[in-house]
Amino acid sequence: MKLAEQVRSGEILALSRLLTLIENDSPEGQEALAELHASTGRAHLVGVTGAPGTGKSVLVNRLTQHLRSLENPPRVAIVAVDPTSPFTGGAILGDRIRMRDLSGDPGIFIRSMANRGALGGLARTTSRMVDALDAAGYSIILIETVGTGQAEVDIARAAHTVLVLEAPGLGDAIQALKAGLLEIADILVVNKSDLPGAKRTARTLRAALKAGSSEADWNTPLVMTNALDGEGIPELAAAISEHQIHLRQTGGRGEKDRARVIGEMERLLLYRLTDRFKAAQIDGAYERAIERVVDRELSPLQAINELLKNSS
């Protein structure tokens, strides 16, 4: 049986291998994903973002546990992105440590991935891996970003519902405003609600929320949670489901899917054109241009224009 077929029929090892092939951008993975494309578009994609230490992994663990305890439990997949070391290219992916409660449930699939140097909170291939999980029949996919705090805007395009996590004691709400995180939040979560200052954090954020929201017809709710003991998790799950219904009723889902496709196509085009352009340069012209910019003979823009002119 072909890889795409095996994935569609729910073979876990085949899915896992496909995710590796996609992550490594191999032709075999591209081919299988192309075959699976028609089976995508069914899952609800939920982004989980926030600064390091706000409790993203613990929240994902608890939320998934809750979803799996519902009467008709959805199959849940989790993609957790952690940073690659810029110095060595290696990575320690530790999100599973906080998700041990989820082991042994065949309705849950967890995959850790390194961002491999990409900025914006996700890896280059995260969206394509999410598509594979979608085609494999997971109806809720949680995407946990790198915890960098001020640059996870990619998730706004990659998910249908974005949860932005805040926790007391991690800088005032001005930080959140500055980061532009509130603008991408469909649901704002103040986690660690048992800590002193949680109520004050929630109050400040609520005031800031009134000033502007991501969609004109959606009032971003603020949910207080304590992911460690599960407090507020049912309310959070209800808010996600409400947003999902809202998107369906208003046609927002179609818009989000379109934005996601546009983002993915632009990214792919950028990488493919860059690779092709570099490959088409004759004997070291690109490297020579770099040297001329380094020596201040040309500006970067002049160098690129010159290369483009010579290769067209």
């Binding site: 690659t84 070391s85 060595t88 290219g89 290696g90 990575a91 320690i92 992916l93 530790g94 599973r96 440590i97 041990r100 082991s103 042994g104 850790s112 390194a114």
Partner: peptide, 21 residues
């Protein structure tokens, strides 16, 4: 850590794992 520094991607799962996990 040593593996990370050598360029590996390390999935670290922590203490007290059962063989099934």
């Amino acid at each position: 850590r040593a593996l990370r520094d050598a360029g590996f991607e390390v999935i670290y799962t922590g203490l007290r794992q059962t063989p099934e996990m």
